[in-house]
Write a protein that binds this DNA or RNA. Structure first.
Lengths: 198, 198
DNA sequence: GTCATCTTTGACACCGTTGTCAATGATGGA
DNA sequence: TCCATCATTGACAACGGTGTCAAAGATGAC
């Protein structure tokens, strides 16, 4: 091989992710990416083809980081603590940065203009993975005993609810309020005492 | 007055709403609006100023229709039925049309690119109104007795959850699944038997 | 050292969008 | 009937974005 790539791919994608996360897929231009990454527009076209291809790679980075955090949050032997940790992670992810960047998945999903089937599929896959992590973590007798719903339904509700929190963050921009709302749903999903199954 | 407006304002805003709802605020151009309404671009600039001003008016229409449907859904003497009706209304609103248009509020909220403070305030106001409708409707002894959370927290959770459903609709495009998820959260929010408060 | 290969770079044409403006036209009031 | 007023219309300039391409440059293989 000769005429070798001049930029560091990991750094570039990380910088691109930052831009996509902040501005959203549709609102980000190739020029934005070129400026943020320090890589010329032409080089980006040459290396990746188009904006959406870059997005896919950047989103993979995002999804990997997010799902890892979620998996970590679910470790532990207390259902209530686990669910609270999941929401805390989701809220932190979307309220980090100044100004807060929100949730990339939610932004992209709502961004009807571009979202190709490929991108949509990526989002769906991420959320399925998310739900699977939650469902699997919840599927143990001591946890089930304290849940208002079965693990699958609970996971579905949790994932959907984090999407709702992401929207509320966009509208109100108030992390404390999100935490409060999350606390409420956990209370509805988990019984206080360790008895009374279903 | 002379040199009088040639187009019907109600029809125009209704057509504009349709476009905004389908394409989203940012992705809609003045030309799109001109085409959809049959009113020339220049006339729209003359009458309203800019795209966002048209959006505000169209959104008011949307909010009014939506909140009316929600209020209707909340009438009745069964908590569970009321909440289910609210979710049914929300789901219907976002899955109507071919292809489904999704939820305008959620789309706009996630559409970071344009959302001016004025637009954001409008969205916040709508959701507050939504929450107030739910909270007020739930605030009666027989309903409270069956709720896992107090009316305010329940309203907050319900509103946030409908936002989550809107995002899931964008990702999966599966109305039946949304209904299933909604059924699950209602189960977590409402006790089956009429006893046991808190 | 030479060459083929690939990247980089800047330029270019094309397109859609915005916002404005002057000319035109229609209408109601005096 | 005439006129002032306002809406309409088409044209225009400016801008930003996309995608392509040819020239130039760098690098590894031979």
């Amino acid at each position: 091989m000769a005429g070798v790539r001049q930029f560091d791919e990991a750094e570039t994608l990380s910088a691109a992710l930052e831009v996509f996360w902040t501005k959203g897929l549709a609102a980000t231009s190739m020029q934005d990416l070129a400026t943020a990454t320090g890589v010329q527009r032409g080089s980006l076209y040459n290396a990746y083809g188009d904006k959406e291809a870059i997005f896919q790679r950047a989103y993979d980075l995002y999804a990997e980081r997010f799902l890892t955090s979620i998996a970590d949050s679910l470790a532990g032997d207390d259902v209530e603590a686990a669910l609270k940790a999941v929401f805390r992670t989701a809220i932190t992810t979307m309220t980090e940065g100044a100004p807060a960047r929100g949730c990339l998945t939610t932004k992209t999903a709502s961004d009807g203009s571009i979202a190709s089937p490929e991108v949509r599929a990526r989002l769906a896959e991420m959320l399925e993975h998310f739900a699977t992590l939650v469902r699997t973590a919840l599927d143990r007798p001591d946890f089930r005993a304290r849940l208002a719903l079965d693990p699958a339904a609970t996971a579905d509700v949790v994932v959907t609810f984090t999407r709702g929190l992401a929207v509320m963050e966009r509208v109100h921009g108030d992390p404390a309020r999100l935490t409060e709302t999350a606390r409420a749903i956990v209370k509805a999903l988990v019984h206080p005492a360790p008895g009374r199954a279903f």
